[in-house]
Structures are given as C-alpha cells and as structure tokens.
Amino acid sequence: MIKVGIIGIGKMGISHLAILGAHPDVEIAGVCDTSKMMLDAIEKYSPFPCFTDHRKMLDTAKPDAVIVAVPTRYHADIVAELLERNIHVFVEKPFCLNAEQAPSLIALAKERKLVNQVGYHNKFIGTFREVKRIVNSGALGDIYHFHGQSYGPVVIRAKQESWRTNPEEGGGCLMDYASHVIDLINDILAPVDKVTSSTLKSIFSKQVDDAVFAMMQLKNNVSGMLSVNWSDDTFRKMTTSLTINGTKGKIISDANEFKVFFKDKEAPAGYRSGWNIKYVTDLTEPVEYYLRGEEYSAQMDYFIKSVLGTKPNLINTFETAAQTDRAISLIRKAQS
C-alpha cells in the first residue's frame, strides 16, 4: 500500500484524487488545499484526512508520494520541499514556471532516487503511443516536417479571471495548452532546439496569450509548425493532433483516430500500403477505474507502480518535462 498525499484540489487535483481513491494499491493519506470550498466538501463526505497547510499534512500523514496540482508558480518550491523529505513526486504540467528552476530539481530527484513524473497525459494515449512506435521503426522514412495542433474552448469571452489568466502564476495558452503538444513533439520526434519565429496572441484575455503559433526546429533538424488556440469554441473539448510527413509516408493522429499512409508496397506488420486507420478502441489498454479517459488512470497507475518498483519511471520524468519548459521559453523569446 502506498500512502499518497494530494496538494491542490482544483480541476486536476480532484480528478487525481478520485482516480487514486479507487486505486487498490493506494491509501489517501491526506488532501490539502488553501481554499476551504472544495476541501470542506471532501472532509464532510469522503473518508480522506484534510489539511489546509501542506507541511502539516507531510508531518502528520507522512505520505510516501505526493501529487502536486497547484498553480505552476508554486511547483518548484513545493517539489523541492518534497524531494528534501524523500517523498516521491507527481507534479502537474507544465513542470516549472521558469526553465532555470528545473536542473536542481532533476539533480535532487536523481540523487535521492525518487520517482518523479509530470502530468503530460497524452503519452498514455494509445494513438499517440502508436505514432511514436511507427516513427521509431523508421517506416516513415526521413521525417522532414511536422504540424502539432491543439484547439479547444477554454477562454471564449472577455472578462474571465482565474490563475490560468494570470501570467505570473503560469497561466496562458502557451503554458497550459501548447505545453501538451510541445511535449508530444519532444517525445515522439526530438526535443525543440530552435524557434525561428512565434506569435502569442491575446484574443479575449487581457494579460495572457490565448493562441500560439510558432515555427520550430528540433535537435534532429526536422522543422515544423505549432498552432494552438484555446479560444476556439468550434471544438467541444481540447483536441490535440499531430501530423508527421516523411519520405516514405505520413501520419495524422489525434487522441481518438490514428491514420497512416505508407507509400511503398512494403508496410510494417499489421499495416498495408496506402492509408490505414486505427481507433483508440484498438489501441487502448483497459483500466481498472475510468474517470475522464483511460490516459488519466493509466498515468496515475504508472506513477504508483513506479513507486512500488514494478514500472521503470521512464515516461514524463522531470528531465523530459524540463525540455518542454525550455521549448516554452524559446517560443516566448522568438516572438516576432
């Protein structure tokens, strides 16, 4: 049994709490938030111990692992404190508000041999896993271009205030939405190396960007585009897709549908020449408890199993998430 504490019970924290609450290897040791609104409801109706001060939770509940789901601004400090106390950490994305904060945290986690994971849940989606497998197999030939996109209806009117609309707390479309696509590109193709130009547009928000468009070059010299817009209400919910062009074929994939075209007569096992379509139903492993998508349960299960030592803690480490932080800062600097 792993004793898990949760710091921050906003949208993601609640989701993680429900998933962990149903996990057979987890005992919820404590739930912590500074806002009493949700905390009181949890205290009243759930069996979980509640705290308003995370230090008190750590001292009293003594968790083996902690989920950090507070605004991005607070990530680095809280994560450092947890690592100092030898606690395994799962932190929401993006990892750090400033890319410079990451190296010391990476080093500390390594030194103390602590499990470290960041909440880029797309890596647990079957279709995107298949994209990575096909890309790594070389079946697309030389990859020469990519287009990463994400659209959704988060800020669709003026006059909305929360930490997500505050640049100092880590708000904005680049940090909140685009980070997912950048992280997928980093993982599937290669880390972003240069950003040749970028535009951060405020559409409805006063202080932060609502859309991000960028031309990027990766460490393997592949170049491509990023278009992300969280003020697009023609999408019912966040929709992320990746198109990858290679000399021998092309992939177009989103979270539900994986389409691949192989030019040559020879295609990899399980595929044929020309177009192939696979669905998330063919590519997704079932989970023991489902809340908002298999990937959310799968990433938590992976974290818990890494703490138990039955999984290797290779997906979404602090190190890979720090590459995404670096790309975010390159995109900011490249604004035209």
């Binding site: 609640i14 429900a18 109706y45 809340l291």
Partner: peptide
C-alpha cells in the same frame, strides 16, 4: 463524470 468522480472519492452520501 460526476457519478464516477463521487465514486472515486467515496462520497456515498452524495
């Protein structure tokens, strides 16, 4: 989403 969230958080009374 709500049923399963309440289920995960063991909020039987709700």
């Amino acid at each position: 989403v709500i049923t399963d969230m309440l289920l995960g958080m063991k909020m039987k009374e709700v």
